[in-house]
């Protein structure tokens, strides 16, 4: 027997069959689900309207139906495009359980390690070079025989499934799906590193920071654009802001915080040619003078790395001397391994 509730049932099936989808597609699917039910039972009365309110009410209804299952049809704005994205999120467990269905324990351990590199990246760059990402394979615990070639495939899979973004420069950062589904994990594991957007209060890994010392204002690009239309100055410190989020003196949050060729400029000989080629992690705090990121100085490794085990793995780690110098002031995860 066809019922009007079949709309939300079919809709949930449609969502289950997809990973992450845009709000526009989701709303189109809703409309199509209504049509599907009407095609099966023309006389049935199904509430539907294209208004935002109707859509929101539908989402509430869908969420009510899956609440007891600790599932949630949640949305978030894509940090790079500003587009509204939806995914069915597993609320239960602060672990990366969602991935457990798709990946082996070693691959999940690798993913966690990559997340850690991203979250602990210096100067709120929230990204990691492919070189550093691949090198991280050797730090996975328990030890795995995953080759770097294999690791490349695995990274490719993370990107293809919407967990990670890979930029033209070859840097990895968190994609919307990771932010949506792993939000609680990120917040509980990296409370000191998490940055929230001043406007929408959501977690932020791509965006812009106010240039004023100690001003904590951070905004997504799309949130900045909306804000900047009406205001010319920072909401907190009143400093004048340029028109575009990409203009100085505003400070980028995310990959743009790591500039091309910056590594070589700042760290001199310590960088191997290989490293600078790959835009490896910049030294921790060269530019902190202009960017007060006080909360980041307490950075500590959240995932335990067996010190003994990593000893013999980092022999080729040429940036070690640099990191060691800074050890006292800022315990970076690399140096803590030695």
């Amino acid at each position: 027997m066809v019922s009007s509730d079949d709309v939300q049932r079919l809709f949930l099936q449609a969502i289950l069959s997809r990973g992450i989808l845009s709000g526009k597609l989701a709303q189109t699917l809703w409309e199509k689900c209504v049509q599907a039910v009407k095609a099966a039972e023309p006389d049935i009365s199904v509430p539907y309207s294209q208004t935002k309110d109707a859509w929101d009410a539908f989402v509430v209804k869908v969420n009510k139906s899956i609440d007891n299952l600790d599932l949630e049809f949640r949305h978030l704005h894509d940090e790079t495009t500003g587009r509204e994205m939806y995914a069915l999120v597993n609320r239960k467990g602060d672990e990366i359980a969602q991935m457990a269905t798709d990946y082996t324990p070693a691959e999940i351990a690798y993913f966690k390690a990559i997340i850690e590199l991203i979250m602990l990246a210096p100067r709120e760059s929230f990204s990691v070079s492919s070189f550093a990402a691949l090198r991280e394979v050797s730090a996975i615990k328990p030890k795995t025989n995953m080759s770097k070639t294999q690791a490349e495939n695995v990274l490719g899979s993370f990107v293809a499934k919407g967990w990670l973004l890979r930029s033209k420069r070859g840097r990895y950062s968190l994609a919307t799906r990771a932010l949506l589904e792993l939000g609680p994990y990120l917040k509980s594991t990296y409370p000191d590193e998490i940055v929230e957007c001043t406007i929408c209060m959501e977690i932020m890994t791509h965006g812009v920071a106010c240039h004023t010392n100690n001003c904590k204002v951070r905004m997504h690009f799309h949130c900045f654009t909306t804000y900047r239309r009406r205001h010319k100055a920072c909401p907190t410190c009143r400093a004048d802001w340029p028109e575009s989020a990409n203009e100085k003196p505003l400070v980028p949050v995310g990959e743009a915080a790591v500039k091309d060729g910056e590594d070589a400029k700042h760290s001199g000989r310590e960088k191997s040619a290989e490293d600078s080629d790959e835009e490896d992690e910049a030294p921790m705090d060269e530019s902190q003078g202009t960017q007060p990121r006080t909360q980041r100085s307490q950075r500590t490794r959240k995932t335990k790395v067996n010190v003994d085990e990593s000893m013999d793995m980092d022999d080729d780690d040429e940036e070690e001397p640099v990191k060691k110098e800074k050890k006292s002031s800022q315990p970076s995860r690399r140096s803590s391994r030695k």
Binding site: S3, S4, S45, A54, A57, K61, D67, L69
Partner: peptide
Amino acid sequence: AHRGRNEESDDDGEGGA
């Protein structure tokens, strides 16, 4: 199905787990 016509009246949820 009838109740469904008016979404507002539906706030007790339906068909849910």
